[in-house]
């Protein structure tokens, strides 16, 4: 019952700072636990993946959306619906590859890094790497194998944060045993 009570009051909003600071604490702990930035990136990606796998179901339930017909439609849904729903911002979709299988999400502000300054000696850390995992995990659940990585990051002195998504292949439905 308590779940329903929470929902009635303030359905899906949580204080953004709480989220940012919790994420910061998570990254700080990972930096303590692991020896180098690569391993931290890997852990963040893994955690994000596990979140994305579940988050997609929540997204589909809320957005009540059908299947995307192509990668451009997918890009639009990610930027205009999903980012808006979960982070309250709308990244710009740009830098399409000629084949239409790669694009970038440009974020002017990144809510995860609101209070963050990267200390020196962490040049390889992708602070918001969790996001990559989330996108990868969520898209995998709708049969899309996609590579996601940061190519620009305001934390590293770039003007903008850029996440690059590359479509690899469509994953096929599982065939029941005994067929084919």
């Amino acid at each position: 019952m308590s779940r329903q009570a929470n929902r009635a009051g303030d359905p899906r909003k949580v204080n953004g700072e709480l989220f940012t600071l919790t994420y910061g604490a998570l990254v700080a702990q990972l930096i303590k636990d692991y020896e180098n930035d690569e391993q931290v990136n890997k852990q963040l990606d893994k955690m994000g993946y596990n979140m994305g796998v579940r988050l997609i179901e929540d997204f589909l339930a809320r957005a009540n959306m059908g299947r995307c017909n192509d990668f451009r439609e997918t890009a639009d849904v990610i930027a205009k619906v999903a980012f808006k729903m979960y982070l309250g911002l709308t990244p710009v979709v740009s830098n399409w590859s000629a084949a239409g299988d790669e694009f970038s999400l440009l974020l002017e502000s990144n809510p995860l890094t609101e209070f963050v300054e990267l200390p020196s000696g962490h040049n390889n850390l992708n602070y918001s790497n969790l996001m990559c995992g989330v996108l990868r995990g969520a898209l995998e659940m709708v049969q899309m194998d996609v590579d996601v990585r940061f190519v620009q990051d305001t934390l590293k002195g770039d003007n903008i944060t850029e996440i690059r998504l590359k479509f690899n292949k469509r994953l096929e439905d599982a065939v029941p045993v005994g067929e084919d």
């Binding site: 997609i56 179901e57 589909l60 659940m141 439905d173």
Partner: peptide
């Protein structure tokens, strides 16, 4: 003649 089967699939394959 006896029953009706309703089917619903989410984009995630559920």
């Amino acid at each position: 003649s006896k029953y009706k089967l309703h089917f619903f699939e989410t984009p995630s394959g559920l």
